[in-house]
Simulated assay, not measured.
Amino acid sequence: MFAVYAAEPNADAPLESLTVGERPEPTVPDGWVAVKVRAASLNGHDIWTLRGVGIKPDQFPMILGCDGAGTLADGTEVVIHSIIGDPDWSGDETLDPRRTLLTEKYQGTFADTVVVPARNAVPKPAGISSVHAAVMGTAWLTAYRMLFTKSGLKPGQTMLVQGASGGVSTALIQLGRAAGMRVWVTGRTEDKRAIAEKLGAHATFPSGERLPARVDAVFESVGEATWAHSMRALRPGGTIVVCGSTSGPNPGADLQRLFFLQLRVEGSTMGTRQELVDLLSFVEATGITPQIGLELPMERAAEGFHAMLDGNTAGKIVFTR
């Protein structure tokens, strides 16, 4: 079958191991289902896989792609939930120490067919297209959990999103606006801030600029480059929700501010199957149209990888079949 895969790990030049070609047809274990892929979205995790991070060398070649939407053999339209956990685990699967993502142990969605546990094929609402459903499983699910499970925000409160144009950031902007939050966003360029405003941000600011007032919660995926600004931006008792550290993982903690102002720092990773179900319902009910920065046929996947690696994103990058 057709697939986009990492032939081998390449830490220094990840795109050199990106291969577009043929892979064997997958087998379907008991309790699993085959999904014919219609659309799949690119994540930073796919770049890490190409680098060999979070995956053992003997797992290569590895078909890339955590997210996707497609159809089962009976025609049922589904969205892929990419967290595969221990079948004996109960409760929040993001806390399962034996959990894994597609592309870490199991082959991913950038192919004609992906095989997943039956519970990981979530019914797709009719009101969401396959292209838009394909972005939900990682970036949008991460944003949903950050906002609705971790932040404690209520409608009318002010949230700050650090970074204006990435997949998680654009999702946070659209979800926050639809949920009745006052949405502020920082961005490095006028173009990126314009994207945030188009998506519903009430105000945008250059990265690091002093804000007109302190906010109730900050949503962080940048790390070292923005952490000091995030800490200064919070009101006493406010919350920073962190899902990543693209600029570096070791920011100055500013512990005096943390304890004196009684700030709260919440880590957040991906989301549960039930949160994906709730996210899909919320997106359909509110009529949100997820921001797609680039849509390409899967055969041209290399162009999407280059755009992500170069930082030329204005929303999610989606590949179609």
Results as ranks from 00 to 15, higher is better:
residue 118 A to S: 14
residue 119 R to D: 13
residue 119 R to K: 13
residue 120 N to V: 01
residue 121 A to R: 02
residue 123 P to K: 04
residue 124 K to H: 12
residue 124 K to A: 10
residue 125 P to K: 07
residue 130 S to G: 02
residue 131 V to E: 13
residue 132 H to P: 01
residue 133 A to P: 01
residue 134 A to E: 01
residue 134 A to L: 00
residue 135 V to E: 03
residue 135 V to Q: 03
residue 135 V to F: 08
residue 136 M to C: 12
residue 139 A to T: 04
residue 140 W to T: 02
residue 140 W to Q: 04
residue 140 W to Y: 14
residue 142 T to V: 03
residue 142 T to F: 09
residue 143 A to F: 05
residue 143 A to Y: 03
residue 144 Y to W: 15
residue 145 R to F: 04
residue 145 R to S: 14
residue 145 R to L: 07
residue 148 F to P: 01
residue 148 F to T: 14
residue 150 K to E: 14
residue 151 S to Q: 04
residue 152 G to K: 02
residue 153 L to A: 07
residue 155 P to N: 09
residue 156 G to L: 04
residue 156 G to V: 01
residue 157 Q to C: 11
residue 160 L to N: 04
residue 160 L to Y: 08
residue 160 L to T: 02
residue 161 V to K: 03
residue 161 V to D: 05
residue 162 Q to A: 14
residue 163 G to R: 00
residue 164 A to P: 12
residue 164 A to F: 12
residue 164 A to Y: 11
residue 164 A to M: 09
residue 164 A to G: 14
residue 164 A to D: 10
residue 166 G to W: 02
residue 167 G to Q: 04
residue 169 S to P: 10
residue 170 T to N: 11
residue 170 T to P: 10
residue 171 A to N: 08
residue 171 A to V: 03
residue 173 I to C: 07
residue 174 Q to K: 07
residue 176 G to W: 03
residue 178 A to T: 04
residue 181 M to Y: 15
residue 182 R to F: 05
residue 182 R to S: 09
residue 183 V to G: 09
residue 184 W to A: 06
residue 185 V to P: 08
residue 186 T to R: 06
residue 187 G to T: 06
residue 188 R to G: 15
residue 188 R to I: 01
residue 189 T to C: 10
residue 190 E to Y: 02
residue 191 D to K: 12
residue 192 K to L: 02
residue 193 R to F: 13
residue 195 I to K: 03
residue 195 I to M: 06
residue 196 A to H: 08
residue 196 A to S: 10
residue 196 A to E: 07
residue 198 K to A: 14
residue 199 L to A: 11
residue 201 A to D: 06
residue 202 H to F: 06
residue 204 T to D: 07
residue 204 T to W: 11
residue 206 P to Y: 11
residue 207 S to G: 11
residue 208 G to W: 11
residue 208 G to D: 09
residue 209 E to H: 13
residue 210 R to W: 00
residue 211 L to N: 10
residue 212 P to Y: 13
residue 212 P to F: 13
residue 212 P to S: 12
residue 213 A to I: 00
residue 216 D to I: 00
residue 217 A to D: 03
residue 218 V to H: 05
residue 219 F to E: 04
residue 219 F to N: 06
residue 220 E to G: 06
residue 220 E to T: 03
residue 220 E to D: 15
residue 221 S to N: 13
residue 221 S to E: 02
residue 221 S to A: 15
residue 221 S to V: 11
residue 222 V to Q: 11
residue 222 V to H: 10
residue 223 G to T: 03
residue 224 E to K: 14
residue 225 A to S: 15
residue 226 T to S: 15
residue 227 W to Q: 10
residue 227 W to P: 06
residue 228 A to S: 15
residue 228 A to W: 04
residue 230 S to D: 13
residue 231 M to W: 07
residue 232 R to E: 15
residue 232 R to S: 14
residue 233 A to S: 15
residue 233 A to H: 08
residue 234 L to A: 10
residue 234 L to S: 10
residue 236 P to A: 14
residue 236 P to M: 07
residue 238 G to P: 09
residue 240 I to C: 14
residue 243 C to K: 05
residue 243 C to H: 09
residue 244 G to V: 01
residue 244 G to Y: 08
residue 244 G to D: 07
residue 246 T to P: 05
residue 246 T to I: 14
residue 246 T to L: 13
residue 247 S to C: 08
residue 248 G to M: 03
residue 248 G to I: 01
residue 248 G to W: 06
residue 249 P to G: 12
residue 250 N to H: 14
residue 251 P to S: 10
residue 252 G to T: 11
residue 252 G to R: 10
residue 253 A to S: 08
residue 253 A to C: 01
residue 255 L to W: 14
residue 255 L to K: 05
residue 256 Q to S: 13
residue 257 R to I: 08
residue 258 L to T: 08
